[in-house]
Design a protein around this nucleic acid. Structure first.
Lengths: 227, 227
DNA sequence: TAGATTGTTAATCGATTAACAATC
DNA sequence: TAGATTGTTAATCGATTAACAATC
């Protein structure tokens, strides 16, 4: 029995969809579109109209039957839902091939998330600046995480070091980890881990490429009769 | 109503878990462990014993109450389930920061999946070899995909080019796409797409780091009373 | 008003979890 | 036999989907 509390629980899937709605709404705003219907948003993000409406109700957004949803209003409410008022600081742990690519990837984007520090054990990397982010030695992890009030971490280290570093991160105050290491992390309650295991994902794609199964989203396409 | 057919459908989640079991079993084999119980596997991969047993039943693996599951046998059956008999060829489309990191990541691993070719539009990258993989011009995509019998693709290109390239890939015979581009791809039925949207994942982690929600897996920890 | 959309409430679907007989 | 595990069958849970009254 989950505690439920006074608010209904938000599932990771809902948050991920919010993130996608935000991106689409930014595009629509850029195109000076003033209002959207749920079925338009659904088409743009590969979902369904009822799903979109339900998501928007979840975060107390409302539209009107005549015009749909006001893009600017919707965007503001989704931002308010997704973003911390003062932004959030992120640490990258592990500056190998993948770590550097991740830095480069996020450096280009204007997120409310800021990669405030990177960490590695390799002296070659320490004190260098990669894609605008300073790399520190792992020894400084706890102090810098505390100092910069970092509460999110991206873990991209060798498998053998993953659990130990996760423990250190949690001890230092990190409450969420995006885990690129193909190792299941054990974390205390209250800490959120999302696995981004590329090997597992690729093997899954290969399996269905071979076996020819559809994922559910494709099945839904039938309902989006547009044009 | 999904067609169901004569075999029960396999869900992506099951396949992803199989991939994780495989990795753990390889470790166990390396340690010369001969047999495992479901609860040991469950602990190692952050799942539950009934879940593991059900998964193994799904692919017709059986264990015996006295010894659990034979590691070597289990591994063989999971390999048979996951891997194509003759291997599968993969194309990487987009050799930017992320693309190169992906190449480096998979180059180190011995998978039954082989990244057979990379593609980019940039003349600077064409004909270069990155992490052991030759980079071709996008113009050659269709011919090389057909020639090398590639049926899986990793998409890591700018958002604006994603849909067009996905269309080309599908036309050339690709049946599965691992999509790192934060754009929903429209593909015909029978083509499987898995989204690996890092921005969305990171925003999700940041949200729960702030809101302090547990993911379900953490809740399950209570059942694994070990030691 | 008529047509289309919103947002709620109920129904369906699937996956996870629990319970238990069979097995070693 | 006794204790623990396997694998099945039933129950629970949550999320998605459908149905419909309210709204513009």
């Amino acid at each position: 029995m989950p505690p439920k509390g006074n608010k209904r629980a938000i599932s990771p899937k809902v948050v991920a969809r919010m993130s996608r709605y935000r991106r689409l709404l930014l595009n629509l705003l850029h195109d000076k579109t003033e209002a959207v219907y749920s079925h338009e948003l659904a088409r743009l993000c590969g979902s369904t109209a009822p799903q979109v409406r339900k998501d928007l109700v979840t975060i107390r957004c409302s539209g009107c039957p005549a015009k749909g949803y006001n893009v600017r209003e919707l965007l503001e409410q989704i931002q308010e839902f997704l973003d911390a008022p003062d932004g959030q600081q992120v640490a990258l742990v592990g500056v190998g091939n993948l770590g550097r690519a991740i830095l480069g990837y996020f450096a280009g984007r204007r997120l409310h998330l800021n990669i405030a520090a990177a960490f590695d054990r390799d002296p070659e990397k320490v004190d260098r600046v990669v894609h605008g982010c300073r790399c520190h030695h792992l020894d400084e992890l706890a102090s810098i995480v505390r100092e910069k009030r970092i509460d999110v971490a991206i873990l991209a280290v060798p498998a053998a070091a993953a659990q130990e570093l996760a423990d250190q991160l949690v001890l230092a105050g990190v409450r969420g980890i995006l885990n690129f290491v193909p190792v299941p992390l054990r974390v205390p309650r209250g800490v959120y881990v999302e696995d981004a295991d590329m090997t597992s994902s690729l093997e899954c794609v290969a399996f269905f490429a071979r076996e020819g199964a559809d994922r559910q989203r494709n099945t839904r396409e039938r309902h989006n009769h547009t044009g």
